[in-house]
């Protein structure tokens, strides 16, 4: 369960996030939706504990990301916007490093890595150095790294960006599986179809503020639009930043 209350963050004169509140409950997929520069990534980074909020609070399973950072982060797995793999380490070594940092080790860790390699269909790249990986391959390794400790809460920034059709489908299956296991999933995407297909709960952010919140059906009903894309445009009042 991820909860965000009255979150505000500025970078100098730029107000990136203004009074954002929402919650992402367990067992649901929550989509953070918004045009480019709306404050999605900043919100994610605040929740993950990478940035310090000016005001407001973010909690993970009740632990404040900033005053109880280690407890909060222990319950969270994050796929960051930039995958940031170690190029001179193999895919397996990248995942293993993060597993060890999270206190896993030995056979248990190796078994978990094998499981993720199978789940994400990355057997052929597991033992290669990640230098020269395609965006999709990098994405798989980064997701395996984020899930290695079986976090109760998962945040994914553009998880299907750069993936081919097969990988995208596999990724969606993984996300649904995580939800069915009762985990809390918060993800961002530009792709409307994907959001419509996956999300149980949508938070629309524009200009650093939450402008709408609800299930896809609720948003369509509220804006009296047939499809979600039109609903989205009606909500934020512009098509800017949409794909």
């Amino acid at each position: 369960m991820i909860e965000v209350t009255h979150l505000t963050k500025s970078f100098g004169p730029v107000k990136a996030v203004q009074d954002v509140s929402f919650s992402a409950p367990d067992g649901l997929i929550t989509g953070l939706l918004g045009p480019n520069g709306a404050g999605k990534s900043t919100t994610m980074r605040l929740v993950a504990g990478a940035l310090e909020p000016d005001t407001g609070q973010t909690t993970i399973d009740g632990f404040d990301t900033h005053t109880q950072r280690l407890e909060a982060q222990a319950r969270l797995g994050v796929l960051t916007d930039a995958h940031g793999l170690y190029q001179r380490l193999s895919a397996r070594e990248n995942v293993r490093y993060f597993g060890r940092l999270r206190g896993l080790g030995g056979k248990e860790l190796e078994a978990r890595i094998d499981e993720l390699v199978a789940l994400l269909d990355m057997a052929d790249i597991a033992n290669r150095h990640t230098e020269g990986f395609s965006t999709g391959e990098q994405g798989k390794v980064a997701i395996a790294r984020a899930l290695v400790h079986r976090p109760q809460n998962v945040m994914l920034d553009e998880p299907t960006a750069g993936l081919d059709v097969m990988s995208t489908r596999a990724m969606r299956a993984v996300i649904r599986q995580l939800r069915d296991d009762g985990r809390c999933i918060l993800f961002t995407s530009h792709i409307m179809q994907e959001v419509a297909m996956l999300c149980d709960n949508i938070v629309v952010i524009a200009g650093g503020r939450v402008v709408a919140q609800g299930s896809p059906d609720e948003l369509r009903a509220r804006t009296r639009q047939e499809n979600l894309e039109d609903a989205f445009v009606a909500i934020i009042g512009t098509k800017e930043g949409l794909i």
């Binding site: 504990g49 990478a50 280690l70 407890e71 994050v78 960051t80 930039a82 940031g84 993060f98």
Partner: peptide, 14 residues
């Protein structure tokens, strides 16, 4: 610069 610092610092490690 290689952008691996942010994911690294998201681990629950002082």
């Amino acid at each position: 610069e290689r952008k691996s610092l942010e994911p690294l610092l998201l681990n629950p490690v002082p």
